[in-house]
Simulated scan of single mutants.
Amino acid sequence: MKKRKLPEETGIFVVLIAVVAVLSILSPSFRTLDNGLVLLVNGTVIAFLALGQTFVLLTGGIDLSTGANVAMTGVIAALLMQGGLPWFLAAVIAVGAGVVLGLVNGFLVHYVRIPAFIATFSTQGVALAIPLIITGANSVSVKDAGFSWIGQGKIAGLPVAVLLLLVAAVIAGVFLAKTRPGVHLYAMGGNKSAARLAGVNVARTTIMAYAISGFCGGMGGLIATSRLMVGFPATGTGNELFYSIAAAVVGGISLFGGIGTILGAMIGAVLIAVVSNGMNVLNVQSYWQSLVIGLIILAGVAFDTYRRARAGKPVFTLRRGGGSGPDSPAGAPVELPASVRSADTPVAGSPTRGTA
């Protein structure tokens, strides 16, 4: 009888349950329904950023501009509504600006060949400056009451922001698990050179990953601005970036690329939100939160490094007959792990398809 393997997200889910149980014992107010809804809504911005960060991390990159994207898109939306545009149109344009930021990041990383850390750190500075320059470092009030629906509205008792996140997470999960471009993201993170030989369009995949991260940053900006009904140039420039990376890493997304799932990243985001909310409820000083989250990141990275070292081999293996490197001559077919393999994916021993 074949042994059933527990999902990779089981470990982080057990940790989440344990943390919730401990905080519930320490503070009766933590386990109330009202606090649970506040926790979920507060965590949606971080979760959206973690969702976008997941796509970039899977390629082996990183996006440091996500927090600045929240500030930029929020202010843009507020200014457009102040100028008379309907809130829905202003929201679409603002998210579009976030996607443009992501496209610029992808272009710099792939075509200009600037390391992702440097490229996105630079665009972070630009995105931070834009709302400060166009507002004179002043906040922008939102008068269109309809805009509040995004961050404050409810459908069947559930916050709209949480429902938007759930829809985005489901779509992202299906995209990564069931589509050819999704498989290509894993392939790039596992071995970019091998993926290119297997027919992966590296340029398109890289730019797509950063564009999705830009979109998620834009959604985070809309939610943050809608909740306050004010466009602050400094929104998203606190711990949002820090927490989004932490959520993805503790959720099992490898900083080295090619490993992880959307479900894991979302559980990680909930864990970060629970820890932050729990410490607030317990009246713990804010700087202790950064220390705890930092330790969580260290634990996640250490586990990721240990996991890779114990595996003793890369995600992708090249067989005889071609490839790059001493043991893999050029032209070798690429063997994808079963978890990310699809019917359209070239596997070892079969001819590769054209560029996708």
Rank of each mutant, 00 (worst) to 15 (best):
A187F: 03
A187Y: 01
A187D: 02
A187W: 00
A187L: 05
M188F: 13
G189M: 03
G190H: 01
G190M: 07
N191W: 02
K192A: 15
K192F: 07
K192Y: 09
S193Q: 15
S193T: 14
A194E: 04
A195R: 00
A195L: 05
R196L: 14
R196E: 14
A198D: 05
A198S: 15
G199M: 03
G199Q: 09
N201M: 07
A203H: 11
R204S: 11
R204K: 15
R204N: 06
R204A: 15
T205M: 12
T206W: 01
T206C: 11
T206D: 07
T206G: 06
T206Y: 03
I207Y: 05
I207L: 14
M208I: 09
M208P: 00
A209I: 05
Y210H: 14
Y210E: 07
A211T: 06
A211G: 14
I212G: 01
I212R: 01
I212E: 02
S213D: 06
G214C: 10
G214T: 00
C216M: 15
C216P: 10
C216F: 09
C216T: 07
G217N: 13
G217H: 13
G217T: 13
G218S: 12
M219A: 13
M219H: 12
G220F: 11
G220M: 11
L222C: 11
L222Q: 11
I223L: 14
I223D: 00
T225D: 02
R227G: 02
L228R: 04
L228N: 02
L228S: 07
V230N: 10
V230L: 13
F232C: 00
P233L: 06
A234Y: 08
A234H: 04
T235M: 12
G236R: 00
G236M: 03
T237V: 14
T237F: 10
T237S: 14
N239M: 15
N239S: 15
E240W: 10
S244E: 11
S244K: 06
I245S: 05
A247N: 06
V249W: 01
V250N: 03
V250A: 08
V250W: 06
I253L: 09
I253M: 08
S254D: 04
S254H: 04
L255Q: 10
L255S: 03
L255W: 02
G258E: 08
I259H: 05
G260R: 07
T261P: 08
I262M: 05
I262N: 04
G264K: 02
G264P: 03
A265H: 04
M266R: 09
M266A: 09
M266W: 07
M266Y: 06
I267L: 14
G268T: 04
A269T: 04
V270L: 15
V270M: 13
L271P: 00
I272L: 13
A273C: 07
A273D: 00
V274P: 12
S276M: 10
N277Y: 04
M279H: 05
V281D: 09
V281T: 15
V281Y: 06
V281K: 12
L282A: 15
N283R: 09
Q285K: 12
Y287H: 12
Y287W: 15
Y287I: 12
Y287K: 03
W288V: 12
W288I: 12
W288T: 11
